Simulated scan of single mutants.
Amino acid sequence: MILVGRVEGELAGMRLDDGAKVLFPQLSKGEIRRIIDWGGCYLSEVLVRVASRTLKEGDEIALGIMEGGRCVDLVYRKEDLLYEDQDFLAVYKAVGVNSQRTPYQLKGTVEYAVECYMRSIGLKDPSRVVHRLDKGTSGVMFFPKNKQAATMLSALLKDGKVDKTYWALVAGSPDQQNWKVDAPIGKLGKFKYGVAHNGKPAKTVFYVIGEGAGVTAIEAKPLTGRTHQIRVHLAHSGFPIIGDEAYGGSPASRMMLHCRKMRFKGPRGNFIEAVAPVDREFAEAAPEIVER
């Protein structure tokens, strides 16, 4: 939800948090300051994170109201990283966390947490999101530490030269132990995609890696990088991901899709790789067939 108000009359000259309190009396001063601190406040379409900013006549204040569960301060320390060298670092993205900043959230995103870590080790470059995971997907995310590394990784991703391995849990038992889906993907709605004749080319290879108690663990290797590709291609195969109700999956505590590994050749010819463990919910959904 977004609240919008305009500064008029006696509000001009007030502090941002005081003026916002007058415009939006349903919010406490503490809630307003939290929104400002978390990057959810825009003053005349400019992000402002200083509660003491002086208001001017005609300023427009926009506040983005987030669910309480999203206000979780995410911090990465050196010991938390999955991989790090002079050019790249890899982190674990948890379920429910946004990969990158949104118009009304900065803190609590992977992008912001990585930038804070980079600042802590003396780097001045911004965190650059060159690939992302859906909010409901967990696993490996790589970040370049400099512009040259960003250009390189972006090119590798575009050319399909980054080996990405995902794990997914589905209900039932596929007839084949491995298969390939070569079906174009197009946008069907604001947040939904599907196989479409006029869509963009998309290819995914699937392997069965374990079965038990009516659940099958699938290893997916996307050969292209379309939005929701694995989710769409598994649903197209008749096996929507457990927890992915948008594509016909059965209800679960989370969407059972996890980016297990990413691997690519680095600038000095060495192979760079990061592997992410699955979380408790994922492991408990298939305890006999999934290793953390």
Rank of each mutant, 00 (worst) to 15 (best):
G13W: 12
T109Y: 01
D175E: 14
S44A: 08
L11F: 03
N146I: 07
R263H: 10
G194K: 12
F142W: 12
L47Y: 06
P201S: 10
M14H: 11
G214V: 06
E10G: 02
R34Y: 01
R15I: 05
V232P: 05
V232H: 08
A149T: 07
G266I: 02
A202G: 09
C41R: 00
P222R: 08
K135T: 12
G122H: 11
A12H: 07
N146Y: 02
W167L: 15
R15C: 06
M141Y: 02
G212K: 03
K161N: 11
R226I: 06
L82W: 01
E291A: 10
Q176S: 10
E84W: 04
G266P: 02
R49N: 11
M118H: 10
F142Q: 09
R101N: 13
I61P: 04
A285C: 14
T102K: 12
G249N: 06
G249P: 01
A235P: 01
K21F: 10
P267Q: 11
P144C: 09
Y83L: 09
E84Q: 13
H131R: 10
S99A: 15
G225T: 07
L156Q: 14
Y166F: 11
Q100P: 02
E115R: 14
V170Y: 13
T216A: 03
E219D: 00
L23V: 05
L43H: 05
K124W: 00
R77L: 12
V7S: 04
L55P: 01
K78N: 13
I242V: 11
K78E: 15
T227N: 14
A113L: 02
K261Y: 00
Q229P: 04
A113H: 04
K56M: 09
A171I: 00
R292G: 05
A183T: 07
L257N: 02
D87H: 14
E79A: 12
E84P: 04
K93N: 11
K124C: 06
L106F: 10
Y92E: 06
F264R: 01
R226N: 04
R132P: 03
K161P: 03
A283R: 15
F239T: 03
S173K: 15
V72L: 13
M152N: 12
S52F: 00
P126K: 15
T227W: 07
D279E: 12
V275Q: 01
A286K: 00
D159Q: 14
A196M: 15
S127T: 03
F239W: 06
G186V: 09
A150W: 02
K158R: 15
V75R: 14
Q100L: 09
V95T: 13
W167K: 13
T204D: 07
Y166D: 08
Y193W: 15
S237D: 07
V46D: 06
Y193A: 00
N146Q: 04
R132Q: 09
S44Q: 05
M66R: 15
K164A: 03
V110R: 08
L82I: 12
A168W: 07
S127E: 05
L16N: 08
M256Q: 03
P174G: 11
L11D: 09
Q26G: 09
A20P: 05
D125M: 12
E84D: 08
A220F: 04
Y92K: 05
I230C: 01
L27G: 06
W38T: 03
C41G: 00
V72Q: 15
Y207S: 08
A235E: 08
Q176W: 07
F143G: 01
